[in-house]
Amino acid sequence: MKTLKNISFWLLFIAIAAVAILPIAQSNVSMREDFFLILMLVILASSTNIIMGYTGYVSFGHIVYFGSGGYVAFYLMQTFQWHFVPAALVGGCVASLLAFLIGMPVLRLRGAYFALATIGINEAVRSFVSNFEPFGGSVGMFFNFGVYDVYGGAKNAGQFAYYAMVVLALVTIATSFLIKKSKFGLGLMSIREDQDASMVLGINPARLKVITYTISAFFPAIAGAIFFFKNGLIEPGPAFELHRSVEALVMVMLGGFGTVTGPIVGAVVYERLRGFLITNETFSNFHLVIAGGLLLLIVLFVPAGLVGWLRLRFAAVRRFLE
């Protein structure tokens, strides 16, 4: 396929893989933990970009798939002693199914209505899970001691989770790239620009939107499975924390929506900023304020985001930074 001959794809892929291997090569656990989190944010941001950046449909409540995938996988591992890999995959599939079912009616709506609906979905699923006894209700679930034995103990499980996150990140980015450079992606961007005109040009917006939304739910779900597997504990609040998907949105806008590298850059920059703010005495409580301020500045003055702006300004960059 054309993408595999594309130089920027391989550059990106190798760069990410190289950075990801670093903590393993140096046996640096705190770096590994740091990167674990950043990779997770990259996955969340990229998935948000797949639906938002390419189709223009803002999914404010995208975190619902993170929580859903996490819960389903956790449940299978804890209750039925499933191994992580099949459990996570099932979690991903369930989340995609959920996205498909919800997406079909809800994606018929235009921009703002959709955005509101996604918030409602997250809140509803969270309320539901809080009441759902098999998932532990409002208390959540936690692993029994034996669960990590299969992986060689809790420490090894941590390393395993890291590898999983790296693989997932690479797959997510590759998917994002493939979509963007394909005929499918062109159709999506056409819908984003003008849905009605797209219909006249032969595009079936409903079908493309639903497929995209379904795909975009898969990756956060598995990320959730990995995250809560490592945590050993899952609760409704953290699993469906609306602010996480909002932060993903800020990352996408910061880096540049509609691009592949934008969400990655956005995630890294945002996380570093947040890390700095939280550990800093004066700013720690203000991180929400600063994130909000940052988003506002971007929206008002640099709506294309960092990567977007670079691509607009410097044509040469376009070849290398998708």
């Binding site: 803002v58 955005a115 909002v246 304020v289 994130a291 909000g292 301020g293 506002l296």
Partner: peptide
């Protein structure tokens, strides 16, 4: 004011950013 004529996404995010700032400030 600056983005009032921009597409929906822009004003959604603009008002949302204000939400974040005010909520954050009030939490502090």
């Amino acid at each position: 004011h600056r983005v009032i004529n921009s597409p929906e996404l822009t004003t959604l995010l603009a008002t949302f950013s204000v939400n974040m700032m005010i909520t954050g400030l009030m939490t502090v």
